[in-house]
Design a protein around this nucleic acid. Structure first.
Lengths: 242, 242
DNA sequence: CGCTAAATTGAGCCGAATCAAAAGTCGTGG
DNA sequence: CCACGACTTTTGATTCGGCTCAATTTAGCG
């Protein structure tokens, strides 16, 4: 049984802007169905021209690119509420792959309907562009991390960003949240080797800043962690939910 | 005297999609004026809420972010036809700074009019989103370069990307184009030190692949350069001009 | 219980950073 | 016309953060 947008559990999270009833109705018409996938499933492939767009409802995943030589760059981690497949939707081709890390449930939209969104729901079109601009913002930050931060700063940067997102999604209980990725995933996201990522995590653990084991991320001192990363801890902006 | 969009010299370059006459008229109404700046001028500042958006008409510049510790990450180089300030336009705040490297001329748009674009020119709104998605694509590639490529591959990657853009803009004459940046700018874009960037350029020069001196970039063997970078040499897509 | 995947730890090496200085380029003013 | 200063490029020497290689430990799981 497909969830109605008006009943969407994500809509209640502090991270998301409210939609008008009219918008909720439109989105529900826009919604083509729901998709449930197992861990490890590929949702979109680099170079593919998928007819579908998604919004992650439950579960986590990741976006990544692979080089000819086999190395992998994780572009970002996918959390509930993230919109996936805009590239294919707009440009006709994905520039990266998307894979489910956990069991996931996603809202499915038809790419063909995207145009009607621009045509007759300019407010939602604006929201979509907002999402794209926000992603651009994020990638600029990530680029800065890889280009200018040391290993320890990178790891600290990534974990505070993840943790803040977790907070905005009400995923944090007693200073801890689920984080079901492997160290290899984080390493590939930060341009570090697995071994060095592991050693760096150990150092942060020893400094009593964070813990991450058994898929649980515990942050003992977010402020201090952000300081290690030399990053601003500005508050998370509400975002539109597609 | 302000250039009419219908007379825009960029529109004739192979890089850009044609606009309908109606769109050209609309864009000209959208256009608030023209701006000319000297080398070194800041166009937008990180964190600022500028009321203006720009399209680069002539000249070159760069986007960058600075960390609290003073290090700088160059996000991208700005070429004629690039749209600047979308972040502030959409999200209300720039996440990076923009600076003119050479003398530049830019079309100026009012941020306040952006909404009318979404409201009544959905096709142009779509184009804007297309640009945002393309930028996202680019940043994903850049991220992959910093995360997974060696110094030599990064430099090769950046130079072939730049050169291809130059080709699409008809800036290449006899295998060479103007490239008025400093080595420090390239270093900051690639997350390398100035010294190592210089040595890496020297190696590529010795291998007879590229030359870059006196602000002129000469590519002797684009195919081979792309191979060094381990990148695909897919053709440049036509893009909308705002 | 053996098998496989993930996390951890140690040793040694190398790519790129830092430090330092020289050399080329260019505009300015005496 | 040349000397001076500011900036950029180039080259050499040295150091070090992070990589690779190689085991070992830990944690599910059929």
């Amino acid at each position: 049984m497909v969830i109605k947008c008006s009943d969407c559990p994500l809509q209640r999270k502090p991270l998301f802007k409210d939609l008008t009833e009219e918008e909720e109705r439109f989105m529900f018409r826009f919604k083509a169905g729901e998709l449930t996938v197992e861990p490890g499933t590929s949702l979109l492939m680099e170079g593919s021209n998928s007819p579908q767009l998604f919004t992650a409802l439950r579960g986590m995943g990741l976006r990544y690119k692979t080089l000819p030589n086999g190395r992998r760059q994780v572009i970002s981690f996918i959390f509930p509420g993230d919109f996936v497949g805009l590239q294919a939707g707009i440009m006709g081709e994905m520039s990266h792959s998307v894979e489910a890390t956990t069991h996931m449930t996603l809202c499915v939209f038809n790419r063909a309907d995207l145009w009607s969104l621009f045509k007759s729901h300019s407010h939602r079109a604006f929201d979509l562009t907002w999402l794209a601009a926000t992603e651009e913002h994020f990638l600029g930050e990530a680029l800065t991390s890889l280009g200018q931060r040391t290993a320890q700063q990178r790891v600290a940067w990534a974990l505070t960003r993840i943790f803040r997102r977790g907070q905005a999604l009400n995923m944090v209980k007693n200073g801890a949240m689920m984080l079901p990725y492997r160290q290899q995933d984080l390493a590939d996201a930060l341009g570090l080797s697995l071994v060095h990522t592991n050693k760096t995590l150990a150092k942060l653990r020893d400094r009593q800043l964070v813990g991450w084991s058994d898929g649980m991320l515990t942050v003992h001192d977010l402020k201090a962690l952000a300081e290690v990363a030399e990053m601003e801890l500005d508050d998370v902006r509400q975002r539109p939910l597609m």
